[in-house]
Design a protein around this nucleic acid. Structure first.
Lengths: 235, 235
DNA sequence: CGAATACTTGATGAGACTCAAGCGCCGTGG
DNA sequence: CCACGGCGCTTGAGTCTCATCAAGTATTCG
């Protein structure tokens, strides 16, 4: 972490990128209404270099965070030292929002990234005094829940190819251009996210390229050439 | 479904059995405060026989549900017909609580079971007028999210033995007697929950019995004989 | 340019899936 | 009461996918 600067930030635009459906519970359709609402939260802008830890598993959950730029992973370490990744968070995503008193997962910067840390303390009072903010948090919790479920189901499914295909489609959906993906994360990270090994990830990507389903101009750039085939694989 | 009877039910006692930590966000510590709160929701009591569907994937999410007795599974069907199980819900658990307009997963009765269906419509107004209820729902969403995460991490982990051990410990934690488990679900269900096949589940349980880690007086009854060994396995 | 790091590729083996019986429990009907 | 059939569970044999171990290549950075 390097810079730490108090700011007052408008809240809301998160969760807009998600591939999951909007329209939750007749709640205010963020982010459209957020300006009207006018609620504000104070947070500290923080910057982290690649592979830097934002918080550790077990740390007291004093704050939660919103990604401004870059990519963050939330993860856990297994006894054998392998890193299991729960989720990747991109600009606009909120992470570190916990049910209990402390963080169940560690958070680390995948790339160079900027986040805003919001104090959790004091939030509860704001929430009870601002229906919109309360609704927003609720909505966010529901969305995160739905994503966690999708991830569970993805991991339960069979082959490495299925997982990789689903991962590529999921990642592509977050990008502006839905056919060219610039991966912020390493093969190791992808492996940790999909419950595979780095070798299997690499081999599977190579195989997809041989099948002309994707192209790999560089290791970190993936071009989706056959969306139909990918969707069929991800089934 | 057989009986359908309008009732007014006190809400709250859910989420009390969970193994996950309480103390969310300085929110009211349900269920202790629920009587004081006095909020009430109207729901219909429904009864389902084993293997009956409560709602299907894609159904409009008009209601959400609380389990009174029995076990419910939320699941999805893969193209090859296999059933992937997201979660098992026991007495007190709430399910069918969706972020979007419709159910992302199907819900089915594992055993004979009784549930209360609460209309989602009208809830939003109650929530905004009752801080405690709103808080409770938020808290519930967070807990469900945490569970989904734990499930993801479980599925990402390696061996069948690890998964089975974790499943047994998780299930035992829900039982009153933490060493004797009466499984409501079939091997097929366990397989669907852990991303394994029925044969692997059976073989792994047999192996654990040979190792004297568990005993299997009947197929559906598991006695945990060596908690230490199980925890070491689940790691 | 050299060294470190990330990625790819190959050979091998373990573990889980598939296919196929076989067992045991339970309810039904003779 | 016992025979029968169905269903859920267990067990076995063979196959295949993916993890592991081990090089080898490419890319980045000092």
């Amino acid at each position: 972490m390097s810079v730490s600067l108090a700011v007052t930030a408008k809240f809301g635009q998160a969760a807009s990128r998600t591939a999951l459906s909007p329209m939750p519970w007749g709640m205010p359709a963020l982010p459209e209404e957020r300006e009207a609402s006018g609620f504000e939260l104070t947070g500290a802008v923080l910057h982290f270099g690649p592979e830097r830890q934002i918080y550790a598993e077990g740390d007291e959950a004093r704050s939660f965070y919103k990604v401004v730029s870059g990519v963050v992973r939330t993860c856990r370490f297994l006894s054998d030292g392998r890193r299991q990744i729960d989720a990747f968070h991109v600009a606009g995503d909120v992470f570190g929002f916990e049910a209990g008193a402390d963080h169940r997962l560690a958070a680390e910067a995948v790339s160079d990234c900027t986040v805003i840390a919001y104090r959790r303390r004091g939030l509860e009072t704001i929430v009870t005094h601002d229906d919109r903010l309360g609704s927003w948090f609720f909505s966010h919790a529901m969305t995160t829940m739905a994503r966690a479920r999708e991830h569970s189901l993805l991991l339960g499914r069979g082959s490495a190819a299925q997982k990789i295909a689903a991962f590529l489609l999921e990642t592509a959906a977050r990008e502006s251009n839905d056919s060219v993906i610039d991966l912020a994360m390493s093969r190791q990270d992808i492996a940790g996210y999909l419950g595979l090994t780095i070798e299997t990830v690499s081999r599977t990507l190579s195989q997809l390229e041989r099948d002309r389903t994707i192209a790999l101009p560089t290791a970190r750039r993936v071009v989706l050439k056959d969306h139909r085939a990918l969707r069929a694989l991800a089934s």
